[in-house]
Structures are given as C-alpha cells and as structure tokens.
Write a protein that binds this DNA or RNA. Sequence first.
DNA 1: GTGTAACCGAGACGGTACGTCTAGTCTTGTG
DNA 2: CACAAGACTAGACGTACCGTCTCGGTTACAC
Lengths: 212, 212, 212, 212
Amino acid sequence: MTKAPDSSRRSEHSRRAILDSALALVGEVGYNKLTIEAIAARAGVGKQTIYRWWPSKAAVLLDASLALSGEAWTDTGWSGFPDTGDLAADLKAVLRATVDEFSDPRYEAPARALTAAGATDPDLSARFTEQLLEPQLALYEARLRAARDAGQLAADADLRLVTEMLVGPLTYRWLLRTAPLTHAFTDALVDSVLAGVGGAGGADGVAKVTVR
Amino acid sequence: MTKAPDSSRRSEHSRRAILDSALALVGEVGYNKLTIEAIAARAGVGKQTIYRWWPSKAAVLLDASLALSGEAWTDTGWSGFPDTGDLAADLKAVLRATVDEFSDPRYEAPARALTAAGATDPDLSARFTEQLLEPQLALYEARLRAARDAGQLAADADLRLVTEMLVGPLTYRWLLRTAPLTHAFTDALVDSVLAGVGGAGGADGVAKVTVR
Amino acid sequence: MTKAPDSSRRSEHSRRAILDSALALVGEVGYNKLTIEAIAARAGVGKQTIYRWWPSKAAVLLDASLALSGEAWTDTGWSGFPDTGDLAADLKAVLRATVDEFSDPRYEAPARALTAAGATDPDLSARFTEQLLEPQLALYEARLRAARDAGQLAADADLRLVTEMLVGPLTYRWLLRTAPLTHAFTDALVDSVLAGVGGAGGADGVAKVTVR
Amino acid sequence: MTKAPDSSRRSEHSRRAILDSALALVGEVGYNKLTIEAIAARAGVGKQTIYRWWPSKAAVLLDASLALSGEAWTDTGWSGFPDTGDLAADLKAVLRATVDEFSDPRYEAPARALTAAGATDPDLSARFTEQLLEPQLALYEARLRAARDAGQLAADADLRLVTEMLVGPLTYRWLLRTAPLTHAFTDALVDSVLAGVGGAGGADGVAKVTVR
DNA sequence: GTGTAACCGAGACGGTACGTCTAGTCTTGTG
DNA sequence: CACAAGACTAGACGTACCGTCTCGGTTACAC
C-alpha cells in the first residue's frame, strides 16, 4: 500500500502556483497540449509535487476551475440566484450571464477541457458533476421551486426536467457549435420553456400557448 | 507546399481495415488509450497510410463513425424520420431510439470520443457537426416543419429552437451523466416541449398548459 | 525464383542519370544521408528502376565511381603508370597525384563512402577491390617489376609488399586523418620504402641506408 | 541552448548495460543493422537514456570499444610496448598480436564499424583517432625513439613516418581485404621497414640491404 | 538544540507513442 | 515489358511526456 501524503505539511504556495499555471497553460496551448511537465516547469515545482496530490492533469484542472469559480463568486459579490419575483426575467438574466461566461476565453478553455475529459472519464465526470455542475443546477431548481410555490408554475412541474430544458440546449450549442450563442437565443429559450410548463414567458409566450 | 496524395490510387482495403480497427479499439481501450500505432498494427497497415489520409486519430474515428452510421441507416432500412401524423408519438419514438443508441457501447464509445475531441478541436468539431449532427437535426426540422404546415405547431415556431430543446437536454444528460437516461425522461421531455410550442403533448400535455 | 530483368531493354539514359545523380548527391549531402529515393527523384526515375539493377546504394555508388574513374582516365589522357626510368621520381609523381585526388571533393566523397561501405560489407568490398583497387595496384606492381628487372630493386623483392608499403600509409593518413596529407609526406615515404628494398631513394635515402 | 544533463547522477549500471549491448549486437547483426532501439531494448533501458549521453550509435560504439580496449589492457596485464632490446623482434611481436586481434570477431566488428563510421564523419573520426588510435601510435613512437636513442635507427629517422609504414600496410590489408592477413606478412613488413630506416630487420634483414 | 521524517525542486530513469523518414515491394498507367 | 510515379507494409528515427525513482536541501515537529 502506498502511504498517503501528510496534507498538513502541504505547501500552499506550490498548490496555488500549480493551479495558476494549469489555468494559464490551458488557455495558451489548449487541453490536448497541456502537459504535467509544463505545469510543473511553469510553477517552479517538481513533477512529483503534482503527482503527489492529483491523479491526472484533468484533476488538476478541475481543482483549478473550482478555485476560479470560487473567486468569481466572491468577485462579483453574487449571493446566489436572483429572485426579483419575475421568473422569466431572472432566468433570462442568468442565462445571458452564462452565455457571456462561455464566451470568456478565461473560462472557456478549462470548461471545454473538463467537459471533454469528463466525457470519456467517468470518475472525473462524477467529481466534475458533483462539485461544479450540481451546485449550479441546484440554484436553478431552488429558484424554480420558489416560482412553483408562488403558483407561477404547474404544481406537478418536474423541476429537474425544466432545469435541463434550460441548460441543455444552451450547453448543446456551446459545446457543439451548431449555432452562435446569443442573448436572443437564450431569451427565446426561456420563453419557450416557460410556455410549456405554465410560466408566463412574456407577451407572445402566452400567445403561443393559446394557439390551438 | 506538401503535395496531396492521389486519392484515385487509394487502397480501399486498407481504408476499411483502418476504420474497422479504430472502431474496435476505441470500444476496447477507450479513446484516451487509442493510439495510431495500435490501429495500424491491428489493421495490418503501415502508420504512414493513416497519416497520409487523416490528420489525427479523431479524424479517423469521425470517418469510422460516418461509415458506421451509414451502415446503421441501411441495416435498419430506415428511410428517414417517422411521420405517422402524430407528432408527439413520432418524436418520442425517435428520442427513445436515440436513448437506446446512446446506451449501446458500440455507438457510445466513438460518440463520446468524438464529442470530447470536438470540444477542444474546432476543426474537428466543424466536420463532426456538419457531417454527422446537422443531417440528423435536419430530419427533426423537416418533421417539425410538416407538423407546423399541418397546423400542429404555432405558425411562428422556431424549428431550430424546438429541435435543440429536444436534443439538448437529452445530450446533456448523456454526456454529463447528471441523471439516468430513460424513456420516461424523453417522453416527458417531448410533452413539455410540445406544450410550450403549441403541439399536443398527449392526453395530459394539453392539461398542463391549461393548468395554472 | 525472381526473374532476372532483360538487360537488352535497359534504358541507358536512366542508367546515366542515376549514376550522375548518385555522384552529385553524395557530394552534397554525404553518404549517410544519401537515399535511394533522392537519387531516383533527382534522376527523374522510378525507384524500381534502381532496385531492378542494383542491390544497394553502395553498389550504385561503386558503378558511379567506376564510370567516374573511367572518364578521368580518358580525360587526362593517361595511358597508365609513368616510366621515366627513374623509379623514385615516378612513384613520387604518382603518389602526389593521388594525394591531390584524395583532396578533390569530387573524388573524396564517393571514395570515402565506398571504403566505409566496404569495411562492413564483404560483398561490396570484393567488388570494390576487384574492380577499382586491384587494377591500380597492378599498375604499381608492373612499374616495380620493370624496376626490378632493371636491377633497381632487390631480385627477391616482394612487389605486392612494396606496393602496400607505398599505398598503405598514404591511405591510412587519408582515411583516419591522423596527420595532414602532403607531398612532402609521400616524397619521404617513397624514399624510405625504396631505401628498404634496395632502390635509390634519393641523395639522403642512400645515406640513411649507410648509417651504421 | 539545451542544457547538459547532470553527469553526477548518471546511472553507471545503465551505462555498462548499453555498452555491453552495443558490443554484443554489433557482433551479431553488423553495424548497418545495429539500431539504437535494439541497443536500448537489449540493455533494458529507455532510448532517451542513450540519446541523453551519446550523439549517435557510432559514439556509443566508440565508448564501448574504449571500455573493451581498457579491459583488454588490464586483462592481459600488458604494461605497454615490449622492449627486449631487439627492435625487430618487438615490432614483429606487436604486429602479430595486432593481426590476431584483427582476426578476433570480438574486436573486428566494432573496429570495422568505427573505421567505417569515422570515414564519413569527421567528428567521430577525431574522437576515434584521439582516444583509440593515437595512444597506440604513441607507443610505437616511444619504442622507436628508444631504438633511435640506442643508435639502432638513423638519427634523423621520422618516427611518425616509420610508425605509419608499419601500421598503414597492415591496416590497409585488413580493411580492404586485398590479401590475407598473416604473421608472415607482418614479419616481412617489419624487415622491409627497418631495412629502409637503418634498423636491423633480423638476420637477413641486413643482408637485404647490403645485397646488391 | 538536535534528530528525523516529511515535503520540496530537480531531473534521470524505463517506457510508450508520437509524427517523420526511408527501405524495399507492389500497382497502375504510358510508350 | 521497361519505365515513371507513387501508394503500400514495415519499422527505425529522434522527440516529448508519462509516471516512478532517487538525490540533496529545507522545514517542522519530537525528543
């Protein structure tokens, strides 16, 4: 059995340097050309220091992304999901912000890398989903639950399904580049989804529902 | 400039052997451990014959998948998208079949590999989208157009948006493994989407819309 | 059994182009980087045309060198070995000419290449020796025999040994680069050798013999 | 600039294994079919470990030969060149031993390989000459100097020339295979050379000089 | 204070695969 | 049928990284 390292003696300085280097490099050369050796060299760190604490370069990047999203959280001063009482408006705001994030190279490179790595690595996928994705989906569900409680959604609406109807098409376009990611797209998406689950998607959203 | 090889003299036998080997190996060892050397060895082919005709292992796999989907097309005798007149039933049938396909290891390994590779390789992504994805999306749109012409959808329905509302959440679950992929899920998805765009999602689909 | 090609239908034009290209290339890139492909390309010839008629690139070079030395023979109008009656002077003249030839890059590259290739390839070595070397050594022996018949050498002198005492040290210096190849060196060599076998090596050549 | 590896951390075990494998393989398959990959595989070593410390397979073989000759030196308990006072006898003994060594396949393969490689690679040739050849030639010169000091050679004898008159013809026959390498040949060679430079080539060596 | 046990930077090691190059064979027209 | 052209199988080339393993050095806690 290989003995576990003593995390209490871990060098925080090296840890930060590694995560920063990984983020910088994945933006510069892309995930496929990202190497542990390059991360170590850029961080001024021995390779073993990376191998001691992470099982793969994808895991390094996951931690780096977690740190990054943690910073973003505190930087923007966000306390969670907006709730102005207007569900459609809130969802549109969040999806627009997501579109912007997906367009920011600072986030895009690691996000694509992790999604790609997770696609063929179930273990990584599980950690990725659990630590990054689910917390965000939970925020959607919480906002939708509030709306349902307020009678703005059908009482039997499947909140997880609705969440995925919002997030799924957005992610699909981003990942597969089938069409450009725009605010107009996400606005229309919110309207269509809410029309289907009983929310008022806007002026013509209601109109659609009433057709036939 | 490097001169292009003369494709009229290409060995069809080698080409088939390479594609078959690639598909077999990606199923056996996964995409990350798939190597050009192994494909060449299994196919009884020189490495240069692969490098001569494909720029990357992902490109090989894309061609292999194209061949595979071409075969599936002829094998099942499908002539396209079903059109029984019942839009909801047709969509459910197709999405159920897609769920089944996503669960078939024969298709899953290369599909995940290509999606992952495309996520970080725009060139490959473009070919992947154009050659595999768009033709399928076009079938959805055609079926939806027929439904719209028949007055089963709102006259101003955005067919591409509806298509992505169907395909996006399904792909999202499959790729990110946020929840199990079931027929119940896709059935509910079809109902919810059609409810939003004026189609009858089934007996209680209409009910949902009117509920408030 | 592999059938032999029909040499009566051989293209003389291709043969010359191949030999010329081989000589030119060996001078430009050296023997180690000389490739059959490059020879064929430069000669405007298919690779198979080379493989049909020669077993190796060394064999091509040997034929090329034979052709080259044949030309040199006719170009310089030499009819063989000089015989002025003065053995020492004749030998010095020939060795000086050999030194000059060894310094001419036009001859040096193929000569070194063939010597090197022959060192580890006995078949090639045999052809090389028989076709290029022996005819030259025979000229030395003939001149020495004439001298011996004229009483200028000991009657029991071993002509082959004397020849090798002249040619050996010269070749040694050239091949191994232990010291610079100069006319002074070969002049001294001739004097010393003739002193040992009873020829008058010059004014001080005799002196040396008489020492003690 | 590529940084040099830290030789203090070099693995002596790997170094020996590489040299041994190179010697064994060059004897088995010959120099032209000797590959770095095969050396690495046989030595149980990564290819990079060879490329890290040697620039070419010829350089490996040179080091291997140096080690081999170092061993031979200590194995045979030789302390240098014999000096019995009888110059002719001493030279004959050494040249006979050289003939024997040239006939020993253990030495012949690497010796031919290095000579061939050096013929077309001046860098290698320089190292080969400096590290293997010159030390041996220096022994000849030292012995000849002792003889000259003892009045057995002409006072103005060119020791380097005499050395090459001994070693050149021997090497010539060995390398070019113009005639069989025998003890009789080298004995006659010694006699002839010494006759030319004033040494007593043996009982009839003097006779030869004075004859006629 | 001084062991002594761990992490640390550094980098050599045995390996695998890369993408390129060349060898030598086979195939496909053309003259 | 020899030829030019060039695709083919095969495999060595030299490089880049992998993940493991010393090697000193430098903390940081135990005695």
